[in-house]
Design a protein around this nucleic acid. Structure first.
Lengths: 154, 154
DNA sequence: ATATTCCCTATCAATTCGATAGGGAATATC
DNA sequence: GATATTCCCTATCGAATTGATAGGGAATAT
């Protein structure tokens, strides 16, 4: 699993938009988003373009232009962000988990890959931008993070 | 999440070793492992070298040489294989999940990353080579794979 | 001796990743 | 209607990663 800089930056910019929206602001420029979360502006512009094409944000050009969320923050999950900027949550040798197939002794492997993806979905599709802004994460996510060794390397 | 070809090949070769061991064979050559699972021999040799350095297999040179598991198949998990050939299970911009830190509105993100890693650990550290050879996967893994939409793309 | 097999280093092409450059198109404001 | 602002598009870049092969040296069983 590698959460890329692209995904990390996308989420942080969207969180800024979600928070700004609650405070009544209309839209934020790429410039101000980059400043607020300390992100490389040009790179962020490219990511925001992906988010717009993916329908997660809407943009407005011109003087008072900028970006705002295309959906309520309560309906935007981290899974949607990952898929929009980085593609499928999980792949095995470039294949989707459910498309893998093996001969002989490895025949049961696809079950594991599908289970792995399902476990990732439970986390990433269960957390919304609104959850993160308020800090009130779903119980099962909080539970995972509170397990005894969760914060230790292995 | 990307399960690389390296990891996929490593697991399949190790499964062959695990199965061969139950059938009483002593060791298998890189050549025969490559043939059995249809893997590129030279590439597999490089992966087996990593597995040996990582202490997951032991090797023997010479005529009747080859590789065998360094531990019982019941004690070898997929997580151990992934970490040996591809490094940490989960990383965020090259950082371990518990090492991430954010300012402002993104401050709660590390909880999500740690939860995500924990959920992956539950699957990958819970499945052993022996489980896969017999097809008897742990209940919670089987449960994840049996969820209604687990085999559907999203 | 010899055939076998692991082992080590180097190299490769293709792709991805993170990032920047430069300028065109829309738009609000004065 | 000129101007400043801001998004938008294409191209490019270096570095790293990925998947893989080549070639030959070192150990070992027969």
């Amino acid at each position: 699993m590698d959460i890329s800089a692209r995904t990390d930056y996308a989420i942080r910019a969207l969180l800024s938009l979600a928070a700004a929206h609650r405070s009544g602001s209309t839209s934020l420029s790429a410039e101000s988003l980059a400043r607020e979360q300390d992100l490389p502006r040009k790179f962020l512009e490219a990511i925001l373009a992906d988010l717009r094409r993916g329908g997660l944000v809407v943009s407005q050009r011109g003087s008072a232009g900028g970006y705002r969320l295309a959906l309520p923050a309560e309906e935007l999950t981290l899974g949607m962000v990952v898929r929009t900027v980085d593609g499928p949550l999980a792949e095995v040798r470039g294949l989707r988990p459910h498309q893998t197939a093996y001969e002989g002794v490895a025949q049961h492997l696809p079950v594991v890959w599908v289970a792995l993806r399902a476990s990732m979905r439970h986390v990433l599709d269960g957390v919304t931008l609104a959850d993160l802004v308020t800090g009130e994460l779903p119980d099962h996510v909080r539970g995972l993070a509170e397990e005894p060794d969760a914060w230790l390397p292995r």
